[in-house]
Simulated scan of single mutants.
Amino acid sequence: MSERVRDFGKYGARGVKGHEAVARQLDALAGYFTTPVTSRRGLLARLHYLTRSDHARQAARAAGLTVTDRTLKAWLDGKRRPSQRNVERVEVAYRTVRRQNVARYLLRRLNAEGRGTRVEIHPLNQSQVPRPRQRVVEFRSLNVRQWDALVRAWTDADDAALDDAWVEKIVDLGSQWGQYEYVTNVGFAA
């Protein structure tokens, strides 16, 4: 696409890619545990979440947590502590399984039986850009009716697909959609 931003930040503009802001908002709606995984309480909460059923255990294994059941039991009982690498695997597996578990719920809420969800797009920060180079970019809102591609890409943690799905949605803003490829924030609720 010829309208995509190629050299973002050259003159001092600040922001994030729109799809990253969408992923951040979806993560907030997913309701992850706030206690860090590095604390005992946070680790136990994640391990209980990942081992509460056979389905959860299979999903955790598919997400990369490939330790034995005996090792998991020792971690849960406090007889052993996982290595730093395994703590990171627990966190990745937890986030992956949590995304898969809440995806259907979020999709149903965001699609709202075809009515969609209003998305507020806050433009990039141009406070550091010299005055002659600043663009007129304003706050915009958009009603997104089909969230399937966005939620699927977020669930799969596929940045490229999420970026493509986001750009497909903001094209509805009209001829200046490229100004909203980078934003300070994207807000919506489910």
Rank of each mutant, 00 (worst) to 15 (best):
G12I: 04
W147L: 01
W177M: 04
R61F: 00
L44Y: 01
D77C: 11
Q134I: 14
R4A: 15
W177S: 07
G174D: 06
L44G: 00
Q25T: 13
T68H: 05
L150N: 01
V87A: 08
Q176A: 13
P36C: 11
T117N: 03
G12A: 09
W166E: 03
R99Q: 07
T38H: 08
P82Q: 11
Y11F: 10
D158H: 03
V16N: 15
L110Q: 11
L106E: 06
R40F: 13
V97G: 00
G31K: 00
A103F: 01
A160N: 05
R24W: 13
R24L: 15
L110N: 11
R57I: 05
A149H: 04
D7G: 06
R115F: 09
D148M: 12
Q176F: 08
R46G: 00
K17M: 06
Q126R: 15
D27R: 00
G187W: 13
G18D: 07
E88R: 03
F8C: 04
S53E: 04
E181Q: 02
V16A: 12
F8M: 02
K73L: 13
E120K: 01
V167F: 01
F8N: 02
H122K: 13
V22A: 01
A189H: 12
E88C: 09
A149D: 08
Q134V: 07
Q128N: 14
R118G: 10
Y11R: 12
R104T: 09
R24S: 07
R85Q: 13
V67L: 05
R52P: 12
R109V: 12
G178V: 03
L173W: 07
A165S: 05
R4H: 06
D163V: 06
W166P: 02
G78S: 12
R57C: 04
D159P: 00
Q58F: 05
Q58H: 12
L43K: 04
D164M: 04
R98F: 01
T66C: 08
T66I: 11
V167R: 02
L76Y: 02
F33S: 11
A112S: 15
T34K: 15
R118E: 08
A56H: 11
Y49F: 15
R6M: 07
L106H: 07
V151L: 02
R98T: 06
L162K: 02
P132W: 07
L110K: 12
P130T: 04
S39T: 15
F139A: 09
S141Q: 09
V151K: 04
Q84P: 05
L142P: 01
V136C: 11
R133N: 04
A93C: 08
V144D: 08
T184F: 06
S2R: 10
R57Y: 06
R145Y: 05
A112I: 01
T34I: 12
G116I: 11
L50T: 01
S39W: 12
P123N: 13
V22N: 01
A28R: 15
V144G: 09
L124E: 14
V92E: 10
R108D: 03
R4T: 14
R104D: 12
K169N: 08
P132K: 14
V5D: 03
R131M: 05
S127L: 15
P123C: 11
D172N: 04
S83P: 10
A189S: 15
